[in-house]
Simulated assay, not measured.
Amino acid sequence: MNYYANFEEHLGAVVDSVKKMLYARHKDIFQRLDFYNDDIYLEPLLYTYLQQQDNKWLDSIIYGYEQSRKPLIAVFPNSNGLIYLPNTGYLRTSFTGSSLMLRTTGNTMTLLDGENEIPFTFEPILHSEHGIEIVTDHHPLLMNVFTEQGNHPEDIHVSGLHLQHLASFNKGMHIIRQLNPDHFGLLLKNLKKVMLFTATQQNSFSVLSAHNMIFLHVNPWDDEIFFADHISHEGAHVTYFTLTYETKQQLFTINYNTPLGDLVGNPGHYPSVYLFFHGMFTFMEITKTLQGCIDLTGLTTMQQHDVKGRFIFHMQRFKLSLDMFAELNLFKEEGAAWYALFLAQYEAFEQQYNSLLPLYNLTGQPYDFNSKVFAEINS
C-alpha cells in the first residue's frame, strides 16, 4: 500500500467536500472565492465554521482569500483584543468587547466601534522555515475545541509561546524531513497551521473540526525531539483523516463510530473504533522518525536517552493497539490492508524495541510522553 503516491486524490476529495458544504450554505460563495484555488479550502477555520451554524464568522475567515473584499464586515477580537484574519494577519487592539466592524477602502483598514475608530497595530502572519503557519494567539471560534475537554477559557494560553519554541519547532521539522521524508512531504501538503498552547486539561491534539491544523501542548523544557515526536503524531492524524475521509466506513464490518470500549467490555474507556485505528497510523509515522533519531548525530546525552524512551513509549502503545484489533476481527478488505501495513512496520522495529525495553523505566508517564518525568526516573 503506497499511500504517498495517491495522496493528492484524497486531498482533492476533502477539498471538494468543503466546497459542497460551503455552497450549500452560501450560494454566492464562488463569486467571492476562487473555485479553482484549492489552497483556500484547506483553511482550518473553514472546517470549524462548517461545524457550527452561525454565519457571522464567514466574512472574517475568508477576508484574506476573497477576490474582492467586502467594504464592511464584522470581526471578533479574542480576550486579548487581538483580531485574527486568516491569510492576512493580526489586528492588535486594547478593545475588550466581542465584536467590531472592519472597513476596508483600497488597502486601508479601519476598525469601528459604532462610529468610533479603534486604534490597532498590524502584525503579519508568522510561518515556520518550511512554510507552515504558526498561529500566535487563540481565536474565539476555536475555543470550543479546548473547553469541551474541560478547560476553562482563562486556563488556555497561546500568546507568546512561539517566541520560546519556534526554533525548536523548525529543528523538529528538519529531523522529520531527514528521517521520514515521505511523511514530511505529506505534511507540507496537508498541515497548514500549528497552534502552541498550554492548558490544564488537554494534551496535544488534532480534530477534524479544525482540519489541516495541529495543537501542541508545550512545556518550557520541550526541545526539537519533542517537536519531531509531536509533529509526527498530530500531523499523522491530519494525514490519516485525509487518507480515509471518504473510505472510513470501508475499513470495518461495523460502524466506524462504534465505541471501542463497548467491544472490549470496557464501556466509556476508549474512543471510537475509527479513532483508535487512527492511532496505529500515527505510531507508524512517529516510530519511523524516532527510530532514525536513535543514531542521529549531534544530540546531547540526555536527548539520546529521551529519544529511546519515546521510541519505547510509542512502540508499547503500538503493540497494545495491534493486539487489541487482532482479537476483534472487524476488518473489511481496506481495513485489513491498513492493519497489515501497521503490523509490518511494528515488526520491522520489534527487535530493537525489545533490546531497549529493559534499559529504561517508563513508570509515571502521562498520556503524552513527558521528558521531565522520564529524566527524573531514569537519571
Score class of each variant (00 low, 15 high):
His162Leu: 02
Phe227Gly: 03
Tyr65Ser: 03
Glu246Gly: 04
Val207Met: 08
Asp59Thr: 03
Trp57Arg: 04
Thr88Asp: 09
Leu196Thr: 01
Phe7Lys: 02
Leu45Tyr: 06
Ile294Met: 11
Gly131Glu: 13
Ser68Trp: 04
Trp338Met: 08
Thr300Asp: 07
Asn170Val: 06
Thr48Gln: 09
Ser355Thr: 14
Thr258Pro: 03
Leu330Met: 10
His127Gln: 12
Asn219Arg: 15
Gly185Val: 05
Ala13Ser: 13
Gly364Trp: 07
Met173Gln: 15
Val264Ser: 08
Gly131Ser: 11
Leu179Ser: 03
Ser168Ile: 01
Gly279Tyr: 00
Ala340His: 12
Gly292Leu: 08
His269Asn: 10
Leu251Ala: 01
Thr200Lys: 13
Asp368Leu: 05
Asn87Asp: 11
Ala199Leu: 02
Gly298Trp: 06
Ser99Ile: 00
Thr239Ala: 15
Leu243Val: 03
Val273Ser: 05
Leu341Lys: 08
Asp59Ala: 15
His26Glu: 13
Tyr346Asn: 02
Leu50Ala: 08
Gly261Asp: 12
Phe215Asn: 11
Phe276Val: 05
Val145Gly: 09
Thr96Trp: 00
Leu45Thr: 06
Leu208Asp: 04
Gln52Thr: 11
Asn87Ile: 01
Lys308Tyr: 07
Phe146Lys: 00
His278Phe: 09
Ile134Lys: 07
Asp229Lys: 07
Gly364Thr: 07
Thr244Gly: 05
Val194Thr: 12
Gln51Ser: 14
His314Arg: 10
Leu263Arg: 08
Ile225Gln: 09
Gln31Asn: 14
Gln316Trp: 00
Gly309Lys: 06
Thr136Gly: 01
His26Pro: 01
Gly12Asn: 15
Val207Arg: 04
Ser206Thr: 13
Gln31Lys: 14
Ala348Ser: 15
Asn151Gly: 02
Met21Phe: 09
Asn151Lys: 04
Tyr41Val: 04
Thr287Leu: 04
Asn190Phe: 06
Asn170Phe: 04
Leu263Pro: 05
Thr48Pro: 00
Gly172Cys: 02
Ile62Ala: 06
Ile175Phe: 11
Leu33Ile: 10
Lys27Ala: 14
Tyr256Ala: 13
Ser371Lys: 12
Arg317Pro: 01
Met173His: 06
Phe227Ile: 07
